[in-house]
Design a protein around this nucleic acid. Structure first.
Length: 424
RNA sequence: GGAGAGUUGGCCGAGAGGCUGAAGGCGCUCCCCUGCUAAGGGAGUAUGGGUUUUAUCGCCCAUCGAGGGUUCGAAUCCCUCACUCUCCGCCA
């Protein structure tokens, strides 16, 4: 959620900034709502004040043993009037909240203009694109060998867009996850957490998935409403919901492995083949909670932490700065890391690292006590995939294949593979 | 799943319809005092919101697990829900 004060003082600026995302913001509707809100809130509070002071007077009169009937007659009319005002106020406040919760974050100055992923800006490339003296297979063909990766079985057990991994490939994915967790905890200073994979609506509202993106979620229960997490970002960032953090405890850095569940309604037709876009996938997420002045620097570092995994695995990748039109709802600035997939001869997203500044923190009421002001102030939140494990598995398979369709185990993963050097 | 007991400020804990946003204690901050330390004295110490933006001051509103209700008036009475603890059952 954006700062309501910004709307009251810089309405034109807000509209202009939201335009960069092609978000159509209607300042007239906002101003009208805000004017009514003010009007009704002031009126309601005046009535409440009147009721409170009258009631107090009755209490005092009664204590003195005076006749309170005249006073009671005086407040008679207040009840209905106040109730009507309160109803009207809560009505307009929920309209206001609905409006505000549907507005995306403002973009950082450094984010380039653009409409789609085609306008994203390439920042850097790393690694050698492998050359093969044979036609490289994609992960689906490689996985079909020994039924190590079985999409039909996934469909039988669940539905389309689920997969079953068997034997060494299942272990390889686990090895990838282990490498990521170990690297982030022992080299990058993150603290490992284990969290619920079902979350309530408040948590999803806090990180920005609700109310706007319910269609992307799997709802697992109705009363109370519980949803399968689309990313560990949700439960992990909600650790600090409604918390005032001691200044000395910042930054907080969490790493968390979890399965992720995405309904991706409407996404059918894209990436139908293989493990690129699944309803369920494994991911290691890194999350930072920082002082506002530190978030830009933290964003760079967090992205480097994700890159470090690709470097350890010697997977070629490029780093993209997302353009205005491709940057997510809650983010001010996002770097995507795209790994090279020989099977598709293209770069594909494997990590997304975002700085949300105070957008999530405001929804979460996640604050820290600023020693300079002595007051609670909003923190900044950041997160990134470090990395998506399913897609990392694909990348390892495709980049480390040989002419016979076998897969060499990258050096960094060997300690986790129990002596295995080659799969297939 | 069954039975019972709880949920009050950073923490402990009083309060049982009316000058209670909440006694008292602990902690913390500032000041005074005392060779040092310890002890002592004094003051302050929730959060959100409104009041044409911000800051100061003031005034006002809301909040005693959450949401409804009764009442002129609710931390206090009633209802619903959530969570915590204890015992029993069942399990990993």
């Amino acid at each position: 959620m954006l700062d309501p004060r910004l709307f009251r003082t810089e309405l034109d600026f807000v509209k202009e900034q939201l335009n960069r995302r092609s978000f159509d913001f209607n300042p007239e509707y906002y101003s009208e709502l805000e004017a009514r809100r003010k009007d009704i809130q002031v009126k309601t509070q005046e009535l409440q004040n009147e009721r409170n002071s009258s009631s107090k007077a009755i209490g005092i009169a009664k204590a003195k043993g005076e006749d309170v009937q005249p006073l009671l007659d005086q407040v008679q009319h207040l009840g209905d009037e106040l109730k009507a005002a309160e109803t009207e106020l809560s009505d307009i406040q929920s309209k206001m909240t609905a409006l505000m919760e549907g507005i995306p974050n403002l973009l950082d100055q450094s984010v380039p203009n653009g409409k789609s992923e085609d306008d994203n800006l390439e920042i850097s490339r790393w690694g050698e694109i492998p050359s093969f003296d044979f036609e490289p297979k994609d992960h689906v063909d490689l996985g079909a060998i020994n039924k190590g990766m079985d999409f039909e079985l996934g469909a039988k057990i669940a539905s389309a867009r689920f997969v079953v991994l068997n034997g060494p490939l299942a272990r390889l994915q686990r090895a990838i996850i282990q490498l990521m967790l170990d690297t982030h905890t022992s080299e990058h200073g993150y603290s490992e957490t284990y969290v619920p994979f079902l979350v309530n609506a408040d948590s999803l509202r806090g990180t920005g998935q609700l109310p706007k993106f319910e269609a992307d979620l799997f709802k697992a229960n109705d009363d109370p409403a519980l949803y399968l997490i689309p990313t560990a970002e949700v439960p992990v960032t909600n650790i600090v919901r409604d918390v005032i953090i001691d200044a000395k405890d910042l930054p907080l850095k969490f790493v968390c492995h979890s399965p992720c569940f995405r309904s991706e309604a409407g996404a059918y037709g894209r990436d139908v083949r293989g493990m690129i876009r699944q309803h369920q996938f494994e991911k290691v997420e890194i999350v930072q909670i920082v002082r506002p002045e530190d978030s830009a620097q933290a964003h760079e570092e967090l992205t480097h932490h994700a890159e470090a995994i690709l470097k350890k695995l010697k997977l070629p990748y490029r780093k993209m700065l997302l353009c205005a039109g491709d940057t997510g709802f809650s983010s001010t600035k996002t770097y995507d890391l795209e790994v090279w997939l020989p099977g598709q001869a293209t770069y594909r997203e494997i990590s997304s690292c975002s700085n949300f500044k105070d957008f999530q923190a405001r929804r979460l009421q996640a604050r820290w006590r600023n020693p300079e002001t002595g007051k609670p102030e909003l923190v900044h939140t950041l997160n990134g995939s470090g990395l998506a494990a399913g897609r990392t598995l694909i990348a390892v398979m495709e980049n480390y294949q040989d002419a016979e369709g076998r897969i060499r185990i990258p050096e960094a993963l060997k300690p986790y593979m129990g002596g295995l050097e080659v799969i297939g």
